[in-house]
Design a protein around this nucleic acid. Structure first.
Lengths: 342, 342
DNA sequence: CTGAAAGCGCTTACAG
DNA sequence: CTGAAAGCGCTTACAG
């Protein structure tokens, strides 16, 4: 065991106990601030504190975790930590968890349910106390298992309709519904929607919101939904947009279903020299600095990401504490209006 | 799933041992694939495997860690996981660590050495096997302590000159030197540099590269370095750029020292309606989608972030294995030429 | 007030 | 070939 040789022996409770001449129990009480309720004598308390400081004692959390059966650790599974939306979310969750003295272990699933299941397994082996998960398509079984085992878990950004888990998501239907309404108010009629091909509810709801709004505004025949594959969104975006432009229903407005799609779409729009908003109005999803630098600053649907991150931790903490009431929250978007819709 | 154990009470080695009627030692050997070298009888091996599967046994990594004195966990400390540069780096490190069966715990220091030290403490308490750290200004003491305790650590993106730690960084001097040279080749003469006020070597080297290049091109009198405070970069950028523009040495070229500074700078340039590259040529640091959407796509200094991430893990793994040779690597940038320099 | 002792779930040196 | 036993570093119910 090269580690032990190299790092030397860390100071343990036993070392302090030996030096002071008491049992490890007393030391443990003092270290954990239980000297009052365990009625440890004041001189002994003082002596233990002194020696602990002198030896620079740090509790071994692994040992404590094993004994207590909890690790003060939560597992966070996102689609991709390199994606700024999830990076921001992770940062908020990290800070909020730290306030509760919890550490976060992050894993990226790449929207792949096999990876996602493997991450859940690995984190479970590491005895995390709970999970915050952005669920991928088809991962119902692994989440269901967590719920049935009563492992605290909260889904974020999306949920799974046939799994009765806690979640906090956007009211996605309303978000796209209002985006379409905004287009209509600006005089657009042939409004197309670029989404991912996915059975996940958040995507289905965004599509449904779009469709319903089109219907309600008597634009049913103008409905056009492009559903792209996750891994090929960049490749297909160009073709997808080309098709839209050369089809017999050339749209006068384009709505994107996610942040990444918005950005890929803007590249395509730039490549095709489309004039925004003259040729086409555009609404993006989630804020992004890119939207500010696009020549026609983008109107977009803003998610309350801060609230989403903080609440997800708060809900998880409640569950870990033993509150078993299922919490399911829908948050409202804000439509940030700028120049891309005229 | 017939064996879903509700709430706690995971299956342990002991349960399997009891059911098979052997000692936990044998079970441990079989689970860890040591049945050959420990010469466990073949029928027993079979039986143990069967029961383990039947009970859906998963080893408790916390117990294993306590016993083995290692956790197969590494601590990663970056400035801010929400910053896309560090998000990408974290993702690369996560994937590379997973290949070595290591889990990564990420913490954000906000360039604050107190936070950084607290994170190091917390991760040490959790018994991480090693660290990958983007060091903040003034955190020499805590890193030095790690090195002296022979805790495996590799610094990334920056290093600390008075601490003899492993590191992998960019050849920052050359990066800014060549950026200046590129400006000169494009006919610029009054080249200003926007940096952070920081004693960290990576920043000092970027400044030194800029200064040296200016000297070598007989532009010493045109040297102008704006050093902004980390937490106020956005606030001051506007003023900083204003000053540059209204000063008696109005620059014809602007070089940015980091990705975040580049983006803040582009906002200022946009607000001031500066024509790039006509009024002013611009070179940014690190790639970013924003650079593509700036009306004059930005020429920039590209860091080999993929290599930086992968190598940092590789070096750390070597150190954890017991290799004590200090590894210090400088990588080379690439200058990606586009339209912002004419 | 205080301490001896059990035990969390593993691994492994050691004895037979 | 196989198993009993010690021990990693803690916490805590329990007895005095």
């Amino acid at each position: 065991m090269p580690n032990l040789v190299r790092m030397g022996k860390r100071v343990s409770l036993k070392d302090i106990a030996a030096k002071v001449g008491v049992s490890t129990a007393l030391v443990s009480y003092v270290i954990n601030g239980l000297e009052k309720e365990k009625r440890v004598g004041p001189e002994i308390v003082k002596k233990i504190r002194e020696v602990a400081r002198e030896l620079n004692y740090k509790p071994n959390q692994i040992a404590r975790s094993l004994r207590k059966g909890s690790t003060n650790t939560i597992g966070l599974i996102v689609a991709d930590i390199a994606n700024p939306f999830f990076g921001q979310l992770a940062r908020i969750i990290e800070d909020e968890a730290a306030r509760h003295h919890y550490t976060v272990i992050i894993g990226s699933s790449d929207e792949n349910c096999v990876k996602s299941a493997a991450l859940i397994e690995a984190l479970l082996d590491r005895q995390v106390d709970g999970f915050i998960i952005v669920p991928s398509e088809g991962c119902n079984a692994s989440i269901e298992t967590l719920v049935q085992r009563e492992v605290p878990v909260v889904l974020v950004d999306r949920f799974l309709p046939d799994v009765n888990a806690n979640y906090i998501v956007l009211d996605n239907f309303k978000a796209t519904y209002e985006a379409v309404t905004h287009f209509v108010a600006k005089g657009c009629e042939r409004i197309a929607f670029v989404a991912y091909q996915s059975s996940l509810v958040h995507m289905q709801e965004r599509i449904r919101g779009y469709r319903q709004a089109m219907k309600d505004h008597q634009l049913e025949e103008a409905i056009q939904v492009k559903e792209l594959l996750y891994n090929h969104a960049k490749d297909f975006m160009d073709n997808g947009v080309s098709e839209l432009l050369t089809g017999n229903q050339k749209p006068d407005a384009l709505l994107f279903a996610t942040n990444a799609l918005s950005i890929s779409g803007l590249y395509a729009i730039k490549n095709h020299n489309i004039k925004v908003p003259e040729d086409m109005a555009v609404i993006g999803f989630d804020g992004n600095e890119v939207f500010d630098f696009f020549y026609s600053p983008l109107t977009y649907i803003e998610q309350p990401i801060d609230q989403m991150g903080k609440e997800s931790v708060r809900i998880l903490m409640e569950q870990i504490k033993g509150n078993h009431q299922t919490v399911q929250i829908e948050l409202q978007h804000r439509l940030i209006q700028r120049q891309s819709c005229g």
